[in-house]
Design a protein around this nucleic acid. Structure first.
Lengths: 159, 159
DNA sequence: TGATAAATTTGTACATTGTCCATGTACAAA
DNA sequence: TTTGTACATGGACAATGTACAAATTTATCA
């Protein structure tokens, strides 16, 4: 966790010729405060709860901008919503089929693209790996024959 | 292309304790006839065009069942719809950021899981890689500064 | 072949996720 | 201050997928 101060973000936005607007800073701050992986709606809800309510569209817009800039990472982890996180380094994800939890998996290369296809398909700039299986907690909880247990661990937000 | 005859599918369904119902066979046949990668709605539209119309829900249900069985592969390739294809062997996907085209990338291992995470995150049964970049056709077409060109190559269906 | 029980399908309604567009606002340069 | 542009905002909308209950199909067994 290399503490990314808002100032840092302001600088990075400016350097990219973008403006450091309230929604962009608020979204970044929200993701950092929550930690882990969260959907656009999670961010929207968090901001509403913390007095910095933004229109849903603005959350989406900001996330797209920040992802393009590389300040946040976007991961498509299944049928549902994409999840975002503050990006310290390039890495992959593990998704539990049982509880849906998303975990980080370090990337040996640490930079994009970390893998290259055997075939010449064009110009590759990113290789994202999604590992699927059963997380340790679900393995420990047993119940090997119950794939329909959508445990929803209470959202662990600080203040 | 190991020609998978419908009989084959019937057998595989039965062996899994499932029934060989009309929607399941029709969806499999549609995917095989179309070739390549297609969304649930593509399948739905194809079937409607070919006299085997099914309710949208049935297409979704069948795809889930068939994917669980391993008869078809499901790939999450971005913000939009998941794409399905008849599965001959495990492989990965390349998604063009420019035109959205999805291509296959052979997997060196050819079986799941082909990669394993460095960390012990639990029990991994699958590792799906998504390569992103610019496909050869878009590279050739130039226009490096036009990411907003949603070329939609006409759906190449036979019959 | 015909009856039976269970698995599936079907249709509707709905929730979720994401995008489009038109208008208003804030910023930065002249 | 003026002006041009980037951006935010809000509403509507499209796309994608799921839940549910009733009707139907499928496999099994007599």
């Amino acid at each position: 966790m290399a503490g990314k101060l808002p100032d840092d973000i302001v600088t990075r936005l400016r350097e990219a010729g973008l403006r450091a607007t309230r929604p962009r800073l608020a979204v970044t701050e929200a993701l950092r405060a929550m930690g882990g992986h969260h959907t656009a709606d999670d961010v929207h809800a968090h901001l509403a709860r913390h007095g910095t309510a933004l229109p849903r569209t603005s959350v989406y817009n900001s996330l797209v901008t920040l992802a393009d800039l590389g300040v946040v990472l976007r991961a498509e982890v299944g049928p549902g919503a994409a999840v975002y996180e503050v990006a310290d380094s390039w890495h992959h994800h593990f998704v539990c089929r049982r509880c849906g939890e998303v975990g980080d998996v370090p990337c040996v290369a640490g930079a994009k693209p970390c893998l290259t296809p055997g075939d010449d398909v064009g110009q590759v700039d990113e290789a994202q790996v999604i590992f699927r299986g059963t997380c340790r907690r679900c393995l420990a909880a047993g119940d090997p024959a119950d794939p329909a247990a959508p445990k929803d661990p209470a959202d662990p937000n600080a203040a």
